[in-house]
Design a protein around this nucleic acid. Sequence first.
DNA 1: GTCTATAGGTAGATAGAC
DNA 2: GTCTATCTACCTATAGAC
Lengths: 223, 223
Amino acid sequence: MSNTAERIIQASLELFAKKGFEATSIRDIALKVNINSATLYHYIRNKEDFLFSLMKNGLGESLSYAEEIALNMKTPQQQIASLIQMHVIIHGEKQLLTYVTDTEYRSLQGEHKIAIKKIRKEYEKIWTNVITLGIDEGIFNGVKDASLTAIALLEMCTGVTHWYSPNGRVPLIKISEEFVNMGLNLLGAELNGRLLTIADLELSSPPKYQNLDTNDYRELLKH
Amino acid sequence: MSNTAERIIQASLELFAKKGFEATSIRDIALKVNINSATLYHYIRNKEDFLFSLMKNGLGESLSYAEEIALNMKTPQQQIASLIQMHVIIHGEKQLLTYVTDTEYRSLQGEHKIAIKKIRKEYEKIWTNVITLGIDEGIFNGVKDASLTAIALLEMCTGVTHWYSPNGRVPLIKISEEFVNMGLNLLGAELNGRLLTIADLELSSPPKYQNLDTNDYRELLKH
DNA sequence: GTCTATAGGTAGATAGAC
DNA sequence: GTCTATCTACCTATAGAC
């Protein structure tokens, strides 16, 4: 795969994140990559299809991680903690992609919009199921409505993509741990009469999501 | 103030929310209001200035509510509970305005961008201060980093604007109460060894933010 | 307060040469 | 794989009549 393809993807993500998809023109991307705008169409079918590929790729990866966690982690506490940590780290490490994915849904059309909505729903369903299980088993005693709780937690964690900076005061791994603790608090997960924390859980450490920048971009383009 | 002005604002909010600001043309708005696109410029200076006015108005109202809460509520528990409830209800009742305000920051330019950022920071500061106070007084024992906690809570509550539906399963007032409970859990606010809930707090009830649709639109337009 | 007409520019996308 | 040239459509905004 050519270097030009990777540069197109990187430049597009930067522009889409900074200016927004609609405000970014084909010529803006071409200028940043230092190619002619007509050359872009050798790599992409059209602008909207390109956005769809980016979003599908980003969401698909998160979904497969979530499925793996739901399968491999034993207790609801470990499952929700791992989901939170994975979600936060991905939204920090792959900030441009998650930011674009989270903000440009409106620019999708027809079947593309339906397909992305479906992936989102599957992802959310995994969170809801884990929380439902935790409530039913009497582990999460601070909440009653699993759907509402899942959506609240998801929005809280997704928000990381809006404010996180790699140069910020708190490193991403620490942020992810604090978010796990806040999540466990929110759920009312207790251990021996005190609030459960991430230190009480045996999670795979360090999480394998930490280095995600070696992406395979092949599926994002038309060839 | 003419009826046309209100219809312009309503149509614009609907289009900006559905398609996005950049994807909405002056002609789209004019068509929806059933006027010529040139007539629009009798009411607005230009498209970007109009967006700024909408956002400034929306954020300014939230900020003044937050200032009132910080001033009138006595304890950090009451303050954060009221802030959460107010934020959630506003994001449900004024969904179009908050949605546009929360998603179109990128389309602002120069001084407008700076001004909106400043209001956001002031608003966030109120939340951070309340949480700091609660931590210092030993009331919020589940968190340590007030800034991180404030931003997490804010993102969680702001998310309501993305998924809330007036026709949904749970009424807005109930959602706001659940969010207060989740927020208190997250902070680790306890009472006699158990998690504090909204029922333990004496909040003004029903909240005055419930009916907000009688807006004064005068400041949003150029006259 | 609303219109017609239009200026001046940029948009996404394609044809076809090399 | 990259370019020049270009089509058609649409964009924001304004001038000026009524």
